[in-house]
């Protein structure tokens, strides 16, 4: 009788463990299958009127970055781009689109909102640069304090209207724009940050400034 009871306990425990594993695998597989284009061959959406751009919209070559302000690699590439892009004034249009990695970077979403809100006061690129420059300072601040503890001081340095900045950060306009960019990125299978597109085609991330220049030079060459 006792043995039968023990067997039931072991059977139940084993069943619970196996059921848990099956449910988890099913959940992970279904979430993983959301990536439509893992090989990155789909072209990026064309440059839109509400895209933040650096350079002339008439430039021959477009360089789109899907980035996350809390991503250390994106901050590294920000430095690389500030060395490379000044060599291509008028020739290359740089576009930044948000792709916050919400699951691994708790402040990715709110920082994207801060940059967009600054943009509504004409200071997108200033905030964009500041967020990357000061990434180490705000990355580990708890999300519920990061605006008050960090972003407000950046907004003050940039001379933003703080009330409007706060209001815009959570406005429909800003949230919709970020969501649109994330949805667009998911649709073309952006799987990491930063991901770059030259003339709407995904490129392998260059290892250094020289490689970046080579890619842009190549794109600028007459076909």
């Amino acid at each position: 009788m006792k043995n039968k009871g023990n067997a039931t306990v072991w059977f139940a425990a084993g069943f619970i463990v196996i059921a848990t594993v099956v449910v988890i695998i099913a959940a992970v597989v279904s979430s993983g299958s959301l990536n439509n284009n893992p090989d990155g061959t789909a072209p990026a959406p064309a440059i839109a009127a509400d895209d933040w751009v650096r350079g002339s919209r008439d430039a021959k070559v477009t360089l789109i970055e899907y980035g996350d302000y809390q991503c250390p690699a994106c901050a590294t590439y920000e430095g690389l781009l500030s060395d490379v892009l000044p060599n291509y004034e008028g020739e290359v249009l740089f576009v930044f689109r948000n792709f916050p990695l919400y699951t691994i970077h708790p402040n990715a979403g709110i920082s994207a909102q801060a940059a967009e809100a600054a943009g509504l006061q004409g200071k997108f690129w200033e905030m964009h640069d500041m967020l990357y420059e000061k990434q180490q300072e705000w990355s580990l601040t708890p999300t519920n304090r990061v605006v008050a503890d960090n972003f407000d001081s950046y907004a003050r340095i940039l001379g933003l209207d703080l009330d409007k900045f706060h209001e815009d950060m959570n406005s429909d306009q800003v949230l919709r724009k970020i969501k649109g960019e994330v949805d667009g990125a998911n649709a073309i299978g952006v799987g990491r940050t930063p991901t770059f597109y030259v003339n709407l085609q995904q490129i392998q991330n260059p290892a250094n400034a020289a490689e970046f220049k080579a890619i842009l030079d190549n794109a600028l060459e007459p076909a």
Binding site: I24, V28, V29, P38, G191, R192, T193
Partner: peptide, 23 residues
């Protein structure tokens, strides 16, 4: 166990979303 099993399954099965220096 459930938490670690999720991370394990994610490691082996899911499309990762890394923030990476090189592709």
């Amino acid at each position: 166990f459930a938490d670690a099993a999720y991370l394990t399954a994610d490691h082996y099965l899911a499309v990762p979303l890394p923030c990476s220096l090189t592709q």
